[in-house]
Design a protein around this nucleic acid. Structure first.
Lengths: 136, 136
DNA sequence: AATTATCCTATAGTTTTAGTAGATTATTAA
DNA sequence: TTAATAATCTACTAAAACTATAGGATAATT
């Protein structure tokens, strides 16, 4: 299941991308437009800023804005920041690899075999979609 | 993330499929071979039996065994029983559909748009793999 | 100086996950 | 018929993750 954090983050990013201007948008406006709890959204936008997706401006007329062109924001990077690993098991993860402690040989593991395919198919989707592609 | 339940369930099914005989295999044997907590595996095998994947026999010489040919067990059905919906959001789920309460129009939702593609790509993988394909 | 809006830390409630404990029932074999 | 074996079932618990919420600190603008 996709976490609410990721869901809300994606919605916020899409909203900012649809605005299509570099003027800051207040958290309250995004929250209201997307039906999101404002305080929760606050922390999500913060992580998006810390990870180089958003810029922010304090004080009157402040808010959040996209730093890059939506065309240059691939879903792979957004997903990894908000949701974490794209792979469903650590042993097939490219960016968050970890060995399973119960598995003696990954190459003979049925779960590994299946989840490798699932990861690749998901990666292809995320690589083929930028933030710009999500705007309707 | 894939739950341990699904992971262990897949491993147990694969083990039973690799045995390739209809004679019952005891929980303890599967647990030991796959490094799984026996008690936890117990409840997993029970759900697999209740959902028509396994048969069981009590008493001495008892255990669990596959009911169907591994070739006739698609990963779609295994995943749905063990992990639940294949879709990452209910609003794109085929078998577990639910409307999002925060979303006024699914067709204009960026999350919906993206997750629809992810679901389809995952479905393709699961449809192309039967239990027989997981045996190495 | 007053206002506005982000920034930051801490915490709390809920749900899910992963695993345990123990009694019960069915089967086999002696 | 009895004892041993092994699945079945119910209930419970500990830990982790998720989804927020509270409240004030900080910075920029007017």
């Amino acid at each position: 299941m996709l976490s609410k954090k990721t869901k809300y983050g994606l919605k916020a990013l899409t909203y900012l991308a649809s605005i299509d201007s570099k003027t800051p948008v207040q958290i309250a406006e995004i929250a209201k437009h997307e039906n999101i709890s404002q305080k929760f959204l606050e922390s999500i936008l913060l992580t998006l800023r810390r990870n180089g997706f958003l810029g922010s401006k304090k004080g009157k007329g402040g808010g959040y804005y996209l730093i890059k062109d939506p065309k240059d924001i691939p879903m792979t990077s957004v997903m990894r920041v908000l949701e974490g690993p794209i792979a469903m098991v650590p042993c097939v993860s490219l960016n968050f690899y970890e060995k399973c402690d119960d598995c003696p040989d990954e190459n003979k593991c049925s779960v590994n075999k299946l989840m490798l395919q699932v990861r690749d198919s998901a990666l292809e989707v995320y690589r083929n979609n930028t933030l710009a592609d999500l705007i309707s």
